[in-house]
Design a protein around this nucleic acid. Structure first.
Lengths: 351, 351
DNA sequence: ATGAAAGCGCTAACAC
DNA sequence: GTGTTAGCGCTTTCAT
């Protein structure tokens, strides 16, 4: 027995009140075409009078859809994901869809749970940004709710995947650094351990350096366990203490770049005069750092929109061929590489 | 083995497969007490064999519960709300609840829609952090899903409200500033326009200054339109150009404080030597600013937990008396007021 | 154009 | 302990 709160008004009640059949009321509620205006008005009056609200659960049970898609992100605390979530939510809302948010903490176990459909049948589709998940984890997925992948990891699997061109983006950032005359460009945020989520960005970094005839040896790579501010700070300190003297640093993401800048600031190393710093994700925080941060700027709005569209395109049993979609990106050049240009604020206003 | 790609297994199918009644299967699925272990095992085997997943829509239709609560936040881009969302999600998960996330953009219209149950969402409860909403908007709420309010605004309405003691917290921050010898403490982030969400923090700021016999006149208050980095930056610039020379600034939130610090940095004003800065919310970003930010640190985990508990306590028609719950807070003192203390990193490690 | 009736998959009386 | 059965509120043939 549903513990009745307030007045529970059903279609049946409205029908009785209006003196028509349930079907007619349903027709009105669903904006069915062939209803006489008079009838429509009459039913509408009863609806208003009784304060009728359709019961979504019943509708879902009947139609087999819930109007909800899940978005599973590694970490909401990282502003990139928060901003991405906002984009997905807005995009979904535009399609009358609602977003259910999960965060996996980037833990494989949690990611597995999510993509194995522990949400059972509450959701019509799933957008997942995996960190630790391996291809084989996704291979035996028995679920039938459409899955769309986000993020840097690439899997050779029949799922839609939305991402920017990470290699090209990383190369652009490093090229910018080289163009500024830097010759020792370190990378912060490679991965320790078996899997390597930063793979593509490391590759882009290395390719560009190699193409320019510059070093990209292991001594220039600072591996980390996580991807937060503290990890970037610690990695930068290690780099400084290693004896190596890079004149530029490219970080896996903005929080790490900002952590690195804090370490540099504390050590009295000037940014960008002594060491230029570039990040990845273009989060708001970077734009307002004391020295604003140069960063690869993915088109988050596009990523969110494409992800939602991809999921919705697979609803109702439709199964378009899996596709890899490239969202756009650009390089937001700011003080951490350019130095303070012109009047105050100019570089900070960039985006 | 699930047959075909459309896995559509119902209780009935499992019952047939196991040679028992649906009730028995239902009992197993719901962990009903009185089932013989042998029977349980047998049913479980069929469940696994068929890959049965309960249909939530049907369960909801029957029970009147969905296992989903909605969380409506003004802005996911503000890390405070992102961190809060994470706390709510985790807390809900601990109760086997799932969180559906909305963001209102702090727009009154959107907030209204949400709390009026727009799109008649499939939710058991709603946690809302309003910015613009007025008491009268909430007064005529016809919805019967439990509503819990979060945040600084206080309404004289019969809803649970979870917040820290904003006045006390603001006073503590200002007291800290005064204790450091500051005599002209400005406030950044008061509101332009009719409603004043920052009210309590402004009040705390004023009370503490008044108690200390220090000025809190209008010239020390910088109003803003929004609550982002850029607003704080602009407000700080206006303050500097006003002729007034505060030796400390208390900002409505951390993003504004950080924006203000950027402005100060750009103008060559030293923090904290010339002007000390304190913020509110203790977001990660502040801990890793070049000059780490002193900030009021609300117990986000507690807020999230209390909010979820409050909502769940009102489920199933239970209507405990509305209550105002105070979550804890403390002042995280860092370099933006203390200066660089001792060895590198010490103050940044604080939280 | 409108009505009657059959379920969607599940839970909870109530029987045995 | 386990089975039978009646709906939860809605959409949807199929008549009319």
């Amino acid at each position: 027995m549903p513990e009745g709160n307030t007045v529970r008004v059903s279609l049946r009640d409205v029908a009785a009140h209006a003196g028509v059949s349930v079907k007619t009321v349903s027709n009105v509620v669903n904006d069915y075409q062939h209803v006489t205006p008079a009838m429509r008005a009459r039913v509408q009056r009863s609806i208003d009078a009784l304060g009728y609200r359709p019961n979504l659960a019943a509708r879902h049970l009947r139609k087999g859809r819930t109007g909800i898609i899940a978005l599973a992100l590694p970490e909401l605390g990282n502003p990139y994901f928060a901003e991405l979530a906002a984009a997905v939510i807005d995009s979904a809302a535009a399609h009358d869809y609602t977003v259910l948010l999960d965060h996996t903490g980037g833990r494989r176990e949690q990611e597995l749970l999510v993509c194995r459909g522990f949400r059972a049948r509450v959701i019509d589709g799933l957008i997942l940004s995996p960190i630790e998940l391996e291809a084989e984890d996704l291979g035996d997925r028995a679920e039938n709710v459409p899955l769309v992948l986000l993020g840097e990891r690439e899997y050779d699997l029949p799922y839609d995947h939305i991402a920017i061109d990470n290699v090209a983006a990383a190369r652009a950032a490093v090229r910018h650094l080289i163009g500024l005359g830097r010759r020792e460009v370190a990378f912060i945020g490679a991965r320790r351990g078996r899997s390597e989520p930063a793979q593509l960005r490391v590759r882009g970094w290395r390719e560009e350096l190699t193409a320019a005839g510059l070093p990209s040896d292991a001594g220039l790579v600072a591996a980390t366990d996580g991807w937060g501010h503290a990890d970037g700070e610690a990695a930068m300190i290690r780099l400084l203490d290693s004896g190596r003297r890079p004149d530029a640093v490219f970080a896996y993401n903005d929080p790490m770049a900002i952590g690195a800048m804090r370490a540099l600031h504390a050590r009295g190393v000037r940014v960008p005069e002594d060491i230029a710093v570039a990040g990845f994700d273009d989060v708001v925080e970077g734009r307002f750092a004391a020295v604003s941060l140069t960063s690869v700027s993915p088109d988050k709005e596009a990523i969110g929109r494409l992800a939602v569209e991809s999921v919705l395109a697979r609803l109702g049993g439709r199964t378009p061929a899996p596709r890899r979609v490239r969202a756009g990106h650009r390089l937001a050049e700011r003080e951490s590489t350019l130095g303070r240009v012109g009047a105050f604020g100019a570089p900070g206003r960039d985006t």
